[in-house]
Design a protein around this nucleic acid. Structure first.
Lengths: 187, 187
DNA sequence: CGAAAGTAAGCAACTACTTGCTTTTTATTT
DNA sequence: AAATAAAAAGCAAGTAGTTGCTTACTTTCG
C-alpha cells in the first residue's frame, strides 16, 4: 500500500495546484494526471470524479489550516495575524475556498470545518462572559468580522478595487482593527 | 440601429446571468445565446470572444454599482449600509467580482472603477484632515476595511465558515463595526 | 444599392471518463 | 522459504459528447 498511498498524495498535490489556479470548470484532469506523473485512470479510480477530487483537495487544505492556526478568543488580534501569515504562506487555501464558495456552495463544508467553527463560537461566548472581549457584537458577528478583516489583503476578495495592498502595513492595520472592534467597552 | 442595440443588451443581460452563476470557464456561449434569444454568431460579432463578453458584462455591472451607490467619507457607516443593500439586491455584481478576481486578476479593473477608487481615497484623506474621521488608519486601509466589512455577509467570500448570516442583524453589526473603526479618537 | 443584421449548419479541437489488459503486491498455504 | 492465487496498482488507447468559434448565405433597412 505504500506505493499507492504515495500515488494518491501525488495526485492530491497536483490537484491542489490545478484547482487553486483554475477552479473546477477550468481545471483539466489530464493536466493534473500529467503533473502528478500518474495514469489518468488512477485518478478516477481513487477519487471518483473531478468534483470529488476537488472536494478532497479542498478538505486537505482546509483541515490543515484549522490544525495549524491556533484559535485564541482572548487574543483575536493575534489570531487574525496568524491567519494572515498562514494565508500569505499558503495562498492556495484562500483561492480554493473562493472556488468552493462559487462552484460548490450548495454543499456543506467538511465536518471538521463545521466543528471547528462551533468551538470557536463557544470560545468567543465564553470570553465575552468573562469580560475579556466586548459584548457589543454577537459571537457570530465577531468571528465573521475577524475572518473578513483577515482576508482583506489576500486579493481574492470580491470587492471593486485595485491590486491588493502591501502586506506589512495592512497586517498591522488589520490587527489594530480587530483590537478596536473587540476591546471591552466601559459600561 | 435600434434593433441591434436591443440585441446587444439582450446578450449582455443573458451573459451577466450565465457568468455570475458559472464564471468564465463554466459558462457556455450557446446557453447565453439561447437565453438571449439570438443567433450565436451575433454574440461573437458584437463582443469578440467569450472572455471579452465577460469583461463587458463585468464592466456593465461594476459601473452601474459605482453610479448607483453614492460614497460619503463623512458617513462611512451609511456608505457600508448602502453597499450591503445594493449587494443584497443585485447579488450578481458580487459573484461577478469574485469570478473576476479568480479568472481575470491579471488584467486591470475598468478605468471607471480605478478612477472611482482614487476619488474615494481622496475624499477619505480630506475627511481625515478635517478631523471628521480617525487618522489611526491610512485612507487605503480604511477603504479596504469598509469594503470588506460590507461584503462579510454576502456568502461569496473565501472564508472557512458555514452559511451566510441573517442579513438584518449582520447589517447592523457591520455598520456598528465601521463606526467603531473610523470614529475620531480623542488626541 | 450597399451596409448592417440575422441565420443554419458546420468543424476541429477538446474533455471527462472508460475499457480491456498486464504487472505488482499481499496474504495464505505448503 | 517457496508456491500460489486473489486483489490491487498500473497503463495505452480509446469514446461519446461537448466546446468556442466560423463560414457562407439570406434578409432587412436607410
Amino acid at each position: 500500500m505504500a506505493k499507492s498511498d504515495d500515488t494518491r498524495q501525488q495526485i492530491l498535490t497536483a490537484a491542489i495546484d490545478e484547482f487553486s489556479g483554475r477552479g473546477i470548470s477550468g481545471a483539466r484532469v489530464d493536466r493534473i494526471a500529467k503533473t502528478a506523473g500518474v495514469n489518468i485512470s488512477l485518478l478516477f479510480r481513487y477519487f471518483g470524479n473531478k468534483a470529488q477530487l476537488f472536494d478532497a483537495a479542498f478538505e486537505e487544505l482546509a483541515v490543515r489550516s484549522i490544525d495549524v492556526v491556533p484559535f485564541d478568543a482572548d487574543d483575536l488580534a493575534g489570531y487574525a495575524g496568524r491567519l494572515m501569515d498562514h494565508y500569505r504562506r499558503y495562498p492556495d487555501i484562500v483561492r480554493l475556498s473562493a472556488w468552493y464558495q462559487l462552484e460548490r456552495s450548495a454543499d456543506e463544508m467538511p465536518r471538521r470545518v463545521v466543528e471547528s467553527e462551533k468551538a470557536k463560537l463557544d470560545a468567543i461566548r465564553d470570553a465575552q462572559e468573562r469580560g475579556a472581549i466586548s459584548k457589543e457584537f454577537s459571537a457570530e458577528d465577531i468571528l465573521n468580522l475577524v475572518l473578513h478583516v483577515s482576508i482583506a489583503s489576500t486579493g481574492v476578495t470580491p470587492i471593486l478595487s485595485t491590486a491588493p495592498r502591501v502586506f506589512e502595513t495592512s497586517r498591522d492595520a488589520a490587527q489594530a482593527a480587530v483590537r478596536t472592534l473587540v476591546e471591552p467597552s466601559a459600561d
